[in-house]
Computed example of a mutant assay.
Amino acid sequence: MEFFAEYMGFLAKTVTLLVAIIVLLVTIAALRGKGRGLSGQLQVSKLNDFYKQLHQRLEQSVLNKDQLKAALKAEAKAAKQDKKAGKSKPRVYVLDFDGDIKASATDHLRHEITALLSLATPEDEVVLRLESGGGMVHSYGLAASQLARIRQAGVPLTVCIDKVAASGGYMMACIGEKIISAPFAVLGSIGVVAQLPNVHRLLKKHAIDFEVLTAGEYKRTLTVFGENTDKGREKFQEDLETTHELFKGFVARYRPQLNIDEVATGEVWLGLAAQDKQLVDQLGTSDEYLAERAKSAELFHLHFAEKKSLQERVGLAASTALDRFALTWLSRLNQQRFW
């Protein structure tokens, strides 16, 4: 038992030291980042080449020599005919958004959209591969506003959802003129939630006072440490209802075919059921859709890569790890069902 106690003490000191180092690095990165201009570059890759390489590699492995020679000859002939006919293929710009609680990917998305709108025309298309379970209202509001720029420019927007687009994620998805969902992707959650602990009774039990001074009747409604009142709870609930109405109105604006009162209950649906609710337009995966589009269009994948220092990379890794840890335990607490 004595050894166990010493070991636990050593472990606690090690964890404390590690956390302190991470906090220090994050602080340094934040201080260095202040006042510094944006540094990064837009990376563009042609997805047609990727699909072509997959096809050629399979041909080389499966076909015999004569079959391979005939296939290459047919492909070369088709390419020559297209070139001779002067056919210009439409462009498809492919973006990715992997959303966390703070919708951090918006920092890259905004620059990617700015770049493509400088060249894209209504004959082109933007495809967004979206994955997000939602998060902060203001953060996802900004992300959705970035996608709205595409619609305002008259460029067709298609949103592909392979896993999840719920809450703020669906706020983004609904802007697409066409929404494609995998059969078992999770969609919906058109609702608003806020929760916080209150330790006022614990502090009171130990004779600890906590004072909250405000100027303005509703500057603070619910607090963690202070004593919450019924009036404060009512105001807090009223604010949630107001946000929910704005959320419903936003979705209804871009998806007028929805029965908004039926789907804006905070519930989620799998893709199969979501199609019946008209939350999505068709079922399929992003791979299926892009592979098909590659046959008749030029596909370009855009990714804005910001240059980061070592401290910033360490800080970002720590922040991402904490976000994933929080989401993992939140999922467990909510008792999500898995197959």
Rank of each mutant, 00 (worst) to 15 (best):
M1H: 11
F3L: 10
E6T: 08
G9H: 04
F10M: 12
T14N: 13
V15E: 10
I21S: 04
I22H: 00
A29K: 00
Q41W: 04
K46V: 15
N48K: 06
Q56T: 14
Q56G: 13
L58K: 15
E59N: 14
N64L: 10
N64S: 08
K65S: 15
K69N: 12
L72R: 14
A76D: 12
A76M: 13
A78S: 11
A79Q: 09
G86K: 03
K89S: 12
V92W: 10
Y93M: 06
V94D: 03
F97Y: 05
S104N: 02
R110D: 15
R110E: 15
E112N: 05
A115H: 15
L116F: 08
L117W: 07
L117Q: 08
S118L: 14
S118Q: 15
D124L: 02
E125R: 02
E125A: 07
R129F: 05
L130K: 03
V137N: 13
H138C: 13
A143G: 01
A143M: 01
A144P: 00
A144V: 08
Q152T: 12
Q152I: 12
V155F: 02
P156W: 07
P156L: 07
L157P: 08
D162W: 07
A173L: 12
I179T: 14
I179P: 13
F184L: 12
A185L: 02
G191W: 08
G191H: 01
G191I: 12
L203P: 04
V212A: 09
K219I: 13
E227K: 04
E227Y: 01
T229S: 09
D230E: 06
K231I: 07
H244S: 04
F247Y: 14
G249H: 11
F250T: 10
Y254A: 10
Q257N: 07
I260K: 03
I260Q: 09
A264I: 11
G266Q: 02
W269A: 12
L272W: 10
A273T: 09
D276H: 06
K277P: 01
Q278M: 03
V280Q: 02
E288L: 13
Y289I: 03
L290S: 05
K295N: 09
L299A: 08
E306R: 01
L310A: 09
L316Y: 00
A318E: 00
T320N: 00
L327R: 03
Q336R: 10
